[in-house]
């Protein structure tokens, strides 16, 4: 009897879930979507206006598919991180690599799928191309010295054009001697 009561008590809840599951918006609450809203992604989205307004929408789209990763700074000062070419999806995960400062990044790229890919990476001194035959991984050491964001992508076939691209965001500041006095930043005057 007690068992039955408990079941009956659950009925309205089940009904509610059944109703809501028909609603498109609430479907977005599924875990695979929710994980996109992890705090670091949200934090970076909030930073976007400072990053780049013209490309804001493109960057936001990349978050939704790829997410982001923060490169770890090694004891030797070199930053390290890894990304994957997701099989059959033509995306990089993570698609956004955050370097906490300018310098060298050792990037490991995995291609676990059956398609051929390559990573065309920005690099001071010339772009770097990492060939990624099916089922292989590769490693490249690139150098980006100035703060800002830099695109990378897969140049095989039209993978870049089909969204297989991401960007490296270099945080940090320019050297002390290159920082100049700038006036305070007041709010815009009202018209």
């Amino acid at each position: 009897m007690r068992q039955a009561t408990r079941h009956f008590a659950r009925l309205p809840l089940l009904a509610l879930v059944a109703t809501l599951s028909a609603c498109d918006y609430l479907r977005l609450l599924r875990p695979s979507v929710l994980e996109q809203a992890e705090p670091p992604v949200v934090a970076l989205v909030n930073k976007l206006p400072d990053v780049d307004r013209p490309n804001e929408a493109v960057i936001a789209r990349i978050y939704a598919t790829g997410g982001l990763t923060h490169a770890a700074v090694g004891e030797d000062g070199v930053m390290r991180d890894e990304i994957w070419a997701r099989p059959l999806q033509l995306i990089w995960t993570p698609a956004i690599i955050v370097m906490p400062k300018g310098g060298e990044l050792e990037l490991t790229v995995h291609n676990p799928g059956k398609s051929r890919h390559a990573a065309y990476l920005p690099n001071n001194g010339g772009h770097m191309l990492l060939e990624l035959p099916p089922g292989t991984s590769g490693r490249a050491r690139i150098e980006l010295d100035e703060p800002g964001f830099y695109w990378f992508g897969c140049p095989v076939a039209n993978h870049f054009g089909r969204n297989m691209f991401g960007f490296i965001l270099v945080e940090g500041d320019v050297p002390m001697e290159a920082r100049l006095d700038r006036p305070p930043q007041p709010l815009p005057p009202e018209d």
Binding site: D52, P122, N123, N124, G126, H127, G148, F149, Y150
Partner: peptide, 11 residues
């Protein structure tokens, strides 16, 4: 020889 120096997209 040639060398390329990457410039951030939003410069």
């Amino acid at each position: 020889w040639h060398r390329t120096f990457e410039v951030a997209e939003q410069v």
